[in-house]
């Protein structure tokens, strides 16, 4: 079993098929949705974790692609700009998964592990310098 963080982009029309239902039911995938915007007549997105066998994930994604849904494994919904970050650490207690953390309490430098990010977006509203942003 592996877990992959994926981003699905929906074309304007494809909002009527219960895709997530099929992923669970037909492809045995465990789905954890972090963020979603699926609205008729507009482009939409789903940011989610899928857990299953490599083969089930591959087939499931093949299935969603047949509806013109784009699957992106590389893209991250929340970005942290190291150049803008001052490492003040104000975000640290607001990050629920410790994606933003201070590994070395001597230098107190803040780092971001995007694999741990669940896109709660609390860093975005709390960063005094605008170091965190969302692509949506």
């Amino acid at each position: 079993m592996t877990t992959k963080k994926l981003m699905l982009y929906f074309p304007k029309s494809e909002t009527e098929k219960p895709l997530v239902y099929h992923l669970v039911k037909d492809y045995n995938l465990v789905i954890n949705i972090f963020r979603a915007k699926v609205t008729p007549e507009e482009y939409g997105y789903l940011v989610l974790d899928v857990t299953g066998t490599e083969e089930d994930i591959r087939q499931g994604m093949e299935f969603v692609r047949t509806f013109d849904v784009q699957v992106d494994e590389a893209q991250k919904g929340v970005r942290w700009d190291e150049q803008i970050c001052t490492s003040c650490g104000n975000c640290i207690p607001h990050c629920p998964t410790e994606a933003l953390h201070i590994p070395d309490r001597g230098t107190m430098k803040v780092v971001f592990d995007s694999d741990l990010c669940v896109e709660c977006l609390s860093c975005i509203s709390n960063c005094p310098y605008g170091a965190c942003s969302s692509i949506f």
């Binding site: 001052t86 490492s87 650490g89 640290i92």
Partner: peptide, 13 residues
């Protein structure tokens, strides 16, 4: 209680 800071020790250093 989780702690956060407004002052950057890293920048001060």
């Amino acid at each position: 209680v989780r702690t956060g800071s407004m002052s950057s020790y890293s920048k001060a250093l």
